[in-house]
Design a protein around this nucleic acid. Structure first.
Lengths: 225, 225
DNA sequence: ACATGAATAAAACACTTGTTTGAAACAGTC
DNA sequence: GACTGTTTCAAACAAGTGTTTTATTCATGT
């Protein structure tokens, strides 16, 4: 016999899914309350208003996922730069797409994607608490992998290239499913995808290091437009 | 003296912006009509209903952008695979982010991102008409760049990695702006960004080719979780 | 000048939305 | 068992939504 979650928790779980699937405005408190088996007024009682519920959802989603899938190896585990890169990439995939992460209630992943697209005021705190530290971790890894040969701007460019690949799988899953069935980012593909992005990115970084001397923008100057 | 656009066209332009910024549900026909200097009833008169307007917007956005920034060199222009890759990447960046593309009325880019996240029925046609052919073009380029050494699944993986990098810049622009000011994907950075993604991806493809013999999943097997 | 159809305008309609209200049910304590 | 604070519930409210209606203006061809 499983103890049922209290109303407040049920609301947060369901709301994360519905907010993500339909967006803040389109999601209605009526539907959220109904699917959570709660009364409509429960939202206002527990969270003041709809936005209060949304803030609670956002905080909950990030706290749980980063706790469950940390981006760095456990303390005391020595790891060379390449291995740290793989760990980082894999954590990202699992966080976004595994059943234990945001892939289970699949709307939750979309909620975050929506925040990237149109950050709400509530997201400012999240950026500082979770996103920026992640950027710094990855930047350090990229710097190490490149042997310290890259300037800050190029390090960040590479970091964005890496994150972009990972997030795109989560973000564009419905389209990927349509035009590349085999790569649908579901549980059993996560290791393959992590491995692919890892290798692709290693080569990418190396390539940036190797072409450092070339004058930017010379290549293909005559390409239109 | 510039001839003012007819109401129908003004509605499509403005609606693309507002739909993108706020989402289909949150965007109101009142606001769209007001900003387009049109009457509220004009939407229903010209497009039957709100969804009709949305469909018109979607079709318009894709038609214009792909006409303005084609992914392939002009007919009769011979180009080696690498050059075709650069052209493809650059076209993507300009389509998404330049003032002449979807970056001007910046909501339009977001509208497409929203469709990737949550495709509406109206998007099915777009996928077949525009997206799938793009996938095939890029797949052919990747295959050529790799010297024909990659199997279909890996080709598509690489293609997704490339597209992911490009789209991520458009999609996550607000966050990138916050944590990596120098790389804000605005007009003057597009060539730098195209060049970066081009080099990164060339190295990435090469790396996938070079590690073809390795058994998938062996690397980092003991990595948690 | 007139007739005809397309385009615009203001007002009204039916419906859904988030929120509030006041009463009822529940839990724990003395 | 009565008291108290917390939680749940059904009903009502005010604001905002997409759409329809009806009348008016505009453009064009004869």
């Amino acid at each position: 016999m499983i103890k049922p979650l209290p109303t407040r928790e049920r609301l947060i779980d369901i709301a994360g899914d519905i907010f993500g699937r339909e967006g803040f405005k389109a999601a209605t408190v009526r539907k959220i309350a109904e699917e959570a088996n709660a009364n409509i007024a429960a939202v206002n009682y527990h969270f003041r208003d709809k936005e209060g519920l949304y803030r609670a959802v956002l905080e909950d989603i990030f706290a749980k996922a980063f706790q469950k899938f940390p981006s760095v190896p456990p303390p005391g585990t020595p790891a060379d730069p390449e291995k740290r890169l793989l760990i980082f990439i894999r954590a990202m995939f699992y966080r976004f797409l595994s059943r234990e992460g945001w892939g289970g209630l699949s709307g939750q992943g979309k909620l975050i994607a929506r925040e990237f697209l149109n950050p709400t005021p509530a997201f400012d705190d999240i950026v500082e608490t979770y996103i920026r530290p992640q950027k710094n971790i990855l930047a350090a890894i990229v710097s190490d992998v490149s042997g310290g040969k890259l300037d800050p701007d190029r390090i960040i460019s590479c970091a964005v290239s890496i994150i972009g690949q990972c997030i795109y799988y989560a973000f564009a899953a419905p389209i990927i499913e349509k035009i590349a069935e085999n790569l649908t980012p579901i549980e059993k593909n996560l290791d393959f995808l992590s491995d692919h992005v890892f290798r692709f990115s290693l080569g990418g970084i190396q390539s940036i290091v190797n072409t450092l001397h070339e004058n930017n923008g010379i290549i293909g100057q005559e390409v239109h437009p």
